[in-house]
């Protein structure tokens, strides 16, 4: 039997949280300049190298951030948030949970029959602006931004003297569901706020998809999108104001997507 090594009573590994951004590059030409560069972006720069590969600290932090994203991927939006913002909830045709949602985008683009009935019963037709919220690929994105962006959009639309439809939430939602909603409610402008797929160590990015009178068969060419809505990207308050402005531009030109680009 091998001899047991004696444990060293002096050895103690007791680490602080490593998720702090500090350069792992040694001996930069301009240390103050390097700090300024790193402060200008959330990207992983100033990381240095071991030969042509990463330093150990930078590599382990990357792996830790990937772990966070993986652990967070399959969560649902908190029902209490939807209640707080008075959003009723409907579902697409996905009924087999997140796994089916990931593998069957076609089902996530269509409202269930129950959803259509409920929307018909609760939402007035032909509003100037209809807002819809979808979970998409990140419940965390909806949770992180909705409290801020939703009131800004509602207030902005009403201040502009436009009618604002009754907003609601769609679970297991894909962008293409806009066509079904457009057919059902016939809004002038439809806004879909939807969670983006999570980035590394960060899952709070929301997108706003918008379309002028969406109809079955519409593609992304008829839509506009504002992405990266979160506190560290496009701030949700500013994003809300921009969305309202774009809705007015769409109404002025009666167009969205490529057609709107050509018209402006």
């Amino acid at each position: 039997m091998p001899e047991q090594p004696a444990t060293d009573p002096q050895l103690s590994i007791d680490l602080p949280d490593p998720a702090l951004r500090r350069p792992t590059l040694s001996h930069p030409a301009d240390p103050a300049g390097l700090h300024a560069l790193m402060a200008a972006t959330p990207a992983r720069i100033g990381v240095g190298r071991a030969g042509p590969r990463y330093t150990t600290a930078a590599l382990l932090l990357f792996q830790a951030d990937h772990a966070l994203t993986q652990d967070a991927l399959y969560r649902e939006v908190e029902p209490s948030l939807l209640a707080e913002l008075a959003l009723f909830s409907v579902a697409t045709q996905v009924c087999g949970g997140k796994q089916e949602y990931l593998l069957r985008p076609d089902l996530g683009r269509k409202l269930s029959e129950n959803a259509k009935e409920e929307i018909r019963a609760r939402c007035p037709q032909r509003p100037a602006v209809q807002l819809v919220v979808g979970d998409g690929l990140s419940a965390a994105a909806v949770e992180a931004n909705l409290r801020q962006i939703l009131p800004v959009i509602r207030h902005g639309v009403l201040s502009a003297g436009l009618s604002f439809g009754v907003p609601f939430f769609v679970s297991h939602c894909r962008v293409g569901v806009m066509n079904d909603i457009g057919e059902l409610l016939q809004p002038d402008v439809l806004i879909l706020l939807i969670g983006e797929r999570p980035g590394l160590g960060r899952a709070e990015s929301l997108s706003a998809y918008m379309a002028w009178r969406p109809q079955p068969g519409d593609t992304d060419a008829r839509r506009d999108v504002l992405c990266n809505i979160f506190a560290g990207g496009t701030n949700p308050l500013e994003a809300g104001a921009y969305v309202v402005q774009l809705a007015q531009t769409m109404r002025a030109h009666q167009a969205s997507g490529v057609a709107l680009k050509l018209a402006t």
């Binding site: 972006t41 959330p42 990207a43 930078a58 990357f62 980035g199 590394l200 990015s205």
Partner: peptide, 12 residues
């Protein structure tokens, strides 16, 4: 991309 982690497109 810096360490393969695209801070805008949310992919690696």
């Amino acid at each position: 991309v810096p360490m393969g982690d695209d801070s805008m497109l949310s992919y690696q």
